[in-house]
Computed example of a mutant assay.
Amino acid sequence: MAQGSLVPLFILLAVVTVLGGVGYITWSIVQEVTRNTRTKMEKKNVVWSRDGMKVGVKELKDEDYKDRSQSVLVNMWNHTSFPAYKSRLWNMTGSANQGSEADKNKW
Rank of each mutant, 00 (worst) to 15 (best):
N45L: 11
A96M: 13
K40N: 14
V30K: 04
I25D: 03
M53G: 00
Q3V: 12
T39R: 07
T34P: 06
V46K: 02
G99A: 00
M76A: 15
E42G: 05
P8E: 00
D64M: 08
G99N: 03
I25L: 10
A102H: 05
S49L: 04
W77K: 14
D67I: 14
M41Y: 06
W107V: 15
M53N: 01
G21A: 05
K61P: 09
R38T: 15
E101I: 08
R88V: 10
V72E: 11
T34N: 15
S95E: 05
G99M: 01
N97Y: 10
I29K: 08
H79T: 13
S71A: 12
V74R: 09
R38W: 13
G20K: 04
K58A: 15
S49C: 02
K66W: 14
E32R: 04
L73A: 15
N97G: 04
A102N: 01
P83I: 04
N105C: 06
V46M: 08
D103T: 15
A2D: 07
L73N: 13
E63I: 06
V22K: 04
P8N: 09
V33N: 09
G52H: 01
G21L: 05
A96R: 07
Q70T: 08
Y24S: 00
S95A: 07
K40W: 08
G94V: 00
T37K: 06
V46H: 03
Q70R: 07
S69L: 12
V7D: 06
S69D: 08
M53E: 01
I11P: 03
A96Q: 09
M76K: 15
E32C: 04
G56L: 11
G23H: 02
V74Y: 06
G4W: 03
W48G: 00
W48S: 04
M76I: 14
V55W: 03
K86I: 09
W27S: 02
W27T: 00
R88G: 15
S69E: 10
V47K: 03
K43S: 12
K61L: 11
D51C: 03
N36L: 10
V46L: 07
Q3F: 11
K106L: 10
L60P: 06
K106M: 08
Y85F: 09
G23P: 02
F82P: 09
R35N: 11
K40S: 15
I29Q: 07
E59K: 14
K54I: 03
H79N: 15
A102S: 04
Q98Y: 03
S71G: 06
G4R: 07
G99V: 01
D62I: 10
M41K: 04
E59Q: 12
